[in-house]
């Protein structure tokens, strides 16, 4: 196995931790607004798990960076262009169906990626992934069930879920992009080539969408640029300004 260089490892950890941070924040926006109490609680629990995982990923990222920063520093003191999450997770929540469709499209990938990381060569990555995969198995079970329930539901819910899938699907491709950071992770045995997960993902998404009576759109066009930091959507800036409000207004304040 090749020695991994810290620049690549840092990028990999930022990508992983920023995905959970930004999705966790998005999902937390539902707190107190979901259609029924059980769903409100489920969304808040999911957000909490994701943010907990973020503390571990970004905590490790900060150590690898070696500049004396913490997970909180990385979450709250970077500006929008420094985030490395995929575009899918920064998209607005839309309606409840769109939120759950985005969750499923992410959970499906997460539930396939984490078991690989849990068997990789980096001890810290392995430990975090082993912890996270237990939580994510509950996330994907619930988001898949909800996508099926709403997709194969009423005419109205079906139409909304199909619209959500049509809108979100072009953002899925970025999860399977590979670049030199991924190549370095593969060489070091830390993470798989994202592209190698696509068949398993398509099979899982295909099974769930069939049960949900929804049609996976044709075409391979993918919006991308988030995980490389080349370009985020306009939505991330708004999210970050709300997420970082307290640190911007009162720099350095602590609980």
């Amino acid at each position: 196995m090749a020695e991994v260089d810290n620049t690549a490892l840092l990028q990999f950890l930022l990508r992983t931790g920023d995905n959970t941070l930004i999705l966790g924040h998005r999902v937390s926006e539902w707190c107190g607004h979901a259609p029924i109490l059980e769903e409100d609680i489920a969304l808040a629990n999911t957000a909490l798990d994701l943010i907990g995982q973020t503390q571990l990923w970004l905590g490790y990222a900060a150590e690898v960076q070696g500049m004396g920063k913490s997970a909180d520093d990385l979450a709250f003191l970077r500006d929008v262009w420094d985030f490395r999450n995929v575009l899918l997770v920064e998209l607005p929540n839309g309606d409840f169906g769109q939120t759950l469709m985005r969750q499923f499209l992410f959970d499906a990938w997460h539930s396939i990626m984490l078991p690989r990381l849990a068997k990789g060569t980096d001890e810290r990555v392995r430990e975090i992934a082993q912890k996270a995969v237990k939580e994510v198995s509950y996330h994907v079970e619930r988001s898949a069930d909800t996508v099926v329930g709403l997709g194969d539901g009423t005419e109205e819910s079906h139409a909304r879920m199909q619209a959500a899938l049509d809108y979100l699907y072009p953002y899925v491709g970025e999860l399977f992009e590979s670049d030199e950071v991924d190549a370095a992770m593969v060489d070091a045995g830390i993470a798989p080539d994202p592209a190698s997960l696509r068949d398993e993902y398509d099979a899982l998404v295909g099974r769930v969408m069939e049960k949900a009576t929804l049609t996976v759109p044709d075409g391979s066009f993918a919006h991308k640029g988030g995980r490389t930091g080349r370009m985020h959507t306009e939505h991330l800036g708004h999210l970050v300004s709300s997420m970082q409000w307290l640190q911007r207004a009162y720099p350095g304040s602590e609980w």
Binding site: E38, E39, I41, A42, N45, T46, L48, D49, E135, Y138, E141, R142
Partner: peptide
Amino acid sequence: KLSQFGSTP
């Protein structure tokens, strides 16, 4: 089962 999630994680 009512919900896979409850009052604590």
